[in-house]
Simulated assay, not measured.
Amino acid sequence: MKKYKYLLSLIVLTLSFMACGDQQPAFNSDSTTTESSSSGAMAKESKGSRDNTIRVLTPEASGVEVYSNVDASIDASNASEGYVMVKYTGSAAKVRMLIETPAGNTYNYLMDLDGNYDVYPLSEGSGTYKIGVYENLHDDQYAAAFTQSVSVTLKDEYSMFLYPNAYVDFNANSKAVKKGQELAASANNDIEVVQNVYHYITKNVKYDYDKAETVQSGYIPNVDSTLATNTGICFDYASLMGAMLRSQGIPTRLEIGYAGTEYHAWISVYTKETGWIDKIIQFDGTDWTLMDPTLGSYASNSQVKKTLDDTTYYQLKYKY
């Protein structure tokens, strides 16, 4: 009988973005949604001076620094780039991977069981990360199959937010990436790319209330599916925008926490012109004041202002 060093009951992170905040859809007369949403209109715009070549970084399990046992492997060869590759090779029917950060926060992932490496970000700076693979025994009871501490010195604070990862998953052939390239064609700088992508998503992707009420724990966004259906929950909005911007070389964090009392997802981006643009976006042509594509897809100016007036409304918990 297999022996485990210890058992633990994991508090499973349930990504049930039911309402994605306590705001209700309101297509009021003061809404900022006035531009054409057709891709044809975008295509007619003149070419901008910024190079919109697709720039997709590919995570690698290089095999230089690998920790493993019969159940799991952790490839930390490129930890300085802000990610590790982890795969499960055991026989459990349900497996979770936990990353404890230097600050003591724990990131909880439901793993794929295909025997291949998946990429996970090291998103809270340099230091020692504890990485563990846990097999489900029953209900919410898990046992450690393999754990390993990895000392990380990050090359910079941006690279991990350029790579695809478990929650912002894309490659050079993704339709979302190609759409991002199209939307960036008219831009003269990174700010205009963010503006174009943000406006496209908020004007074309509709909030899916049925999905919000039925989404299961462990749900992972599919950026091409969101683009094809033009529907999603806040997790989908943030992941799609993240894929489009990262593939244009713009560091983008998918952020998860609380908007009011509701569990929610939004993004922050980094540009050389502005540094990190945090929390939520409502773009009026001069000032970035909010960075929440879900809210931007339906909220009026008055709703956005009400949200902005509450400086404690957005409480960040996790960065991906």
Rank of each mutant, 00 (worst) to 15 (best):
N230Q: 14
N230K: 07
T231E: 06
G232D: 05
G232K: 02
I233F: 11
C234G: 04
C234H: 05
C234L: 07
F235E: 15
D236F: 02
D236G: 08
D236M: 03
Y237W: 05
Y237M: 10
Y237D: 06
Y237N: 07
Y237P: 03
A238Q: 12
A238I: 09
A238F: 01
S239F: 07
S239V: 09
L240E: 01
L240R: 03
M241H: 08
M241W: 04
G242L: 13
A243N: 12
M244Q: 12
L245I: 09
R246E: 04
R246F: 00
R246V: 05
S247Y: 03
Q248W: 00
Q248K: 02
G249I: 04
G249N: 06
G249K: 05
I250W: 00
I250E: 00
P251S: 11
P251A: 05
T252L: 01
T252F: 00
T252P: 00
T252H: 01
T252A: 08
R253G: 03
L254P: 01
E255S: 09
I256P: 02
G257L: 10
G257H: 14
Y258P: 01
Y258F: 12
A259S: 14
A259E: 08
T261R: 14
T261G: 06
T261A: 10
T261D: 13
E262M: 15
Y263P: 15
Y263S: 13
Y263I: 13
H264L: 11
H264G: 10
H264A: 10
A265T: 13
W266R: 06
W266H: 07
S268M: 07
S268V: 05
V269P: 09
Y270R: 12
Y270P: 03
T271M: 06
T271I: 04
K272C: 00
K272R: 13
K272P: 01
E273C: 07
E273S: 12
T274A: 14
G275I: 06
G275H: 12
G275A: 14
W276P: 02
I277M: 03
D278K: 12
D278Q: 15
D278F: 14
K279F: 13
K279H: 11
K279Q: 13
I280D: 02
I280A: 15
I280N: 06
I281E: 02
I281L: 13
I281Q: 07
I281K: 09
Q282M: 15
Q282H: 14
F283W: 15
D284F: 05
D284T: 15
G285C: 08
T286R: 10
T286V: 12
T286M: 01
T286H: 10
D287M: 11
D287R: 15
D287W: 13
W288R: 02
T289N: 04
L290N: 02
L290S: 11
L290P: 00
M291Y: 11
M291P: 00
M291H: 12
